[in-house]
Design a protein around this nucleic acid. Structure first.
Length: 541
RNA sequence: GGUUCCUUAGCUCAAUUGGUAGAGCGGCUGGCUCUUAACCAGCGGGUUGCAGGUUCGAGUCCUGCAGGAACCA
């Protein structure tokens, strides 16, 4: 016997009532999940009807299809179902139930939509009617057979002639007025969020559509979808702290990938022209509205392209995806209107910082000089002076940009010419070796795309990874390590190539039209047991 | 990582200065043939996140822990 707490119908009524057996509720589904039921009312076989958890239901229409059919039939409002109207078999979850004594209304919901069911004594008979409204609860899955009609109030409904319980819910759905508001429960019990909050369903539907739109266009352009390792012997491809785990068979610590980059570039060495991967990546860093520990990154690599070719393609592809998902090019993101149509603006990092702070980074060849210029203008880098003192010139520029420029950008804006030492895998600019041939796409204050002409010179690559490894040894947990296996691949010859990375969860923000959508995935990670101690989290057994 | 705030019934929330833990919804019982958050009458429902402390007395004050939120990094 289950714990009575939280289980409907198990509340300890008067002792005499509980003892009254069949007459007062014993042996019913409502009281006992495994209760029996006769099949007189069931449109299905006696075998499956005898269980509150049957194995299937043969439906004739989804609820959206039933609604469309009903609208085509030209039924008269308030009239009883016509004898020649088709018998429909519908199923879904019961989301509302209103018993009027001899007439009852229920709302059935499925993936496609919702439809009202009407239970009526005239159609079912007194006994069957009573059984239906007594046995059924909001939250139950139900199959129903009957004909469509319009109620006197004008709502398209199915007049139920036969019905079958398809799955008994032992726990009630969230409160019907306010729904499920507790953010934690929305994440821990996402199924409830999806069930009662249509905007949550819409949000993840759009995300799926975005992925499909991107994939379709990449395939059209000759990109090949591949999968690369998630468990890797070394973290690589980004500046981030990894998750560590242990490989028992090899007795080796392995890392969950922080980016698929070097693996995809190995495939370019292997002769693929264009590859892409929707790569689940993991970064062991703090969670905030724009960072998830577990997120999906789309990366692609195109041989023979440089970053400028890539920028052209990115503009086309992102515009196309936005049009597909939101049906237009203007999108409101985090309270800002962003126009994806037309030609996107392109600015160098230097221009941007000069405009927003008056500082020309090119006039400051080292960190000390730049630091002095920042201090002279009284710019608050929003971090401790010790932290500021530790930053090299590249990191200082990055920090300055993040404070003075990035929050003000509506975008879509391409930013180019980043310091090379912030991009250890990017090609140096021919005009200025201190800069990388790189671009970022900023939308509503967030970087959503990072791309560059890839560094294909194995000697330069080795030097720059060694520089990173030194920073790592000096205590920078996000710095890269020397990835010999990748250098080995590169030493065999990598063609000119440009790569692209897009955080899907972040980019889905516009598609989802929400203010803080990047925060959580469909089934987000969370601590195993909330509200510590001996008690289970709310809503958990 | 830092600061502030939050955690009370299945859900959404109350509870005066530290003095008997409540309401609505959901559940249960009864009534009702056009409801849409149905309505009417009645009844159950609690280890106040966890562990300590102060006090005659703690949902309330203090300490620690866990989880969550906002802002900052």
């Amino acid at each position: 016997m289950l714990d009575a707490r939280g289980r409907r119908g198990l509340s300890s009524g008067p002792a005499s009532g509980a003892d009254a057996g069949e007459g007062r509720g014993g042996g019913r589904w409502r009281r006992r999940a495994s209760g029996r039921c006769d099949s007189a009312n069931s449109p299905s076989s006696a075998r499956s009807a005898s269980s509150p958890y049957p194995d299937r239901f043969a439906r004739t229409h989804t609820l959206a299809e039933a609604r469309a059919l009903g609208e085509r039939l030209g039924l008269e409002v308030g009239a009883a179902p016509r004898d020649d109207a088709p018998q429909l078999r519908l199923c879904g979850r019961l989301m509302a139930l209103r018993d009027m004594g001899r007439l009852g209304f229920a709302r059935l919901q499925d993936h496609s939509g919702a439809l009202q069911l009407v239970f009526e004594v005239r159609a079912l008979g007194q006994e069957a009617y009573r059984r239906a409204v007594r046995l059924l609860d909001v939250g139950d899955h139900l199959g129903a057979q009957g004909r469509l009609f319009y109620t006197r109030k004008g709502e398209l409904s199915l007049l139920v002639e036969q019905w079958q319980l398809l799955s008994k819910a032992l726990r009630p759905l969230p409160e019907k007025w306010h729904g499920l508001r507790d953010r934690e429960l929305c994440w821990r019990q996402r199924y409830l969020d999806l069930l009662v909050n249509p905007e949550t369903r819409e949000r993840f539907r759009r995300r799926g559509e975005l992925v499909r739109a991107l994939r379709a266009m990449l395939e059209e352009h000759g990109f090949v979808e591949v999968e690369t390792p998630v468990l890797t012997p070394q973290p690589s491809g980004a500046l981030a702290r990894p998750f560590v785990t242990h490989h028992h068979a090899l007795d080796l610590d392995v890392y969950l990938r922080i980016a698929p980059e070097t693996w995809l570039k190995r495939l370019i060495v292997g002769g693929y022209d264009r590859v892409y991967e929707f790569a689940r990546c993991f970064r062991n860093e703090g969670m905030d509205p724009s960072h998830l520990q577990d997120f999906t990154m789309l990366e692609w690599y195109a041989a023979w392209w440089n970053y400028l070719d890539n920028m052209e393609f990115t503009e086309q592809l992102v515009r196309h995806a936005v049009e597909r998902v939101v049906g237009g090019t203007a999108v409101e993101i985090r309270g800002r209107r962003v126009e994806f149509g037309g030609r996107w603006e392109r600015r160098t990092l230097r221009e941007l910082i000069l405009q927003d702070s008056g500082i020309d980074i090119d006039a400051h060849a080292d960190a000390a000089s730049l630091r002095a210029a920042i201090a002279a203008r009284g710019i608050d880098l929003e971090q401790s002076p010790e932290e500021t003192a530790r930053l090299g010139r590249g990191s200082l520029i990055d920090r300055l940009y993040k404070v003075v420029s990035r929050p003000r950008i509506d975008g879509p804006l391409f930013i180019t010419a980043h310091p090379a030492d912030l991009s250890p895998l990017a090609r140096r600019s021919d005009e200025d070796p201190a800069r990388a041939d790189r671009f970022q796409l900023v939308v509503a204050g967030w970087e959503v795309v990072n791309a560059y002409s890839e560094l294909i010179d194995p000697l330069d690559q080795r030097a720059r990874l060694e520089q990173q490894a030194a920073a790592r040894a000096a205590g920078d947990a996000e710095a890269m390590v020397v990835e010999e296996d990748y250098l080995l691949a590169m030493e065999h010859g990598m063609p000119p190539v440009s790569g692209f990375g897009l955080g899907i969860d972040r980019f889905a923000a516009p598609a989802e039209r929400r203010r803080e959508p990047a925060r959580r995935g469909l089934l987000p990670p969370h601590a195993p047991c909330a509200r510590g101690g001996g008690r289970a989290p709310r809503g958990h057994p």
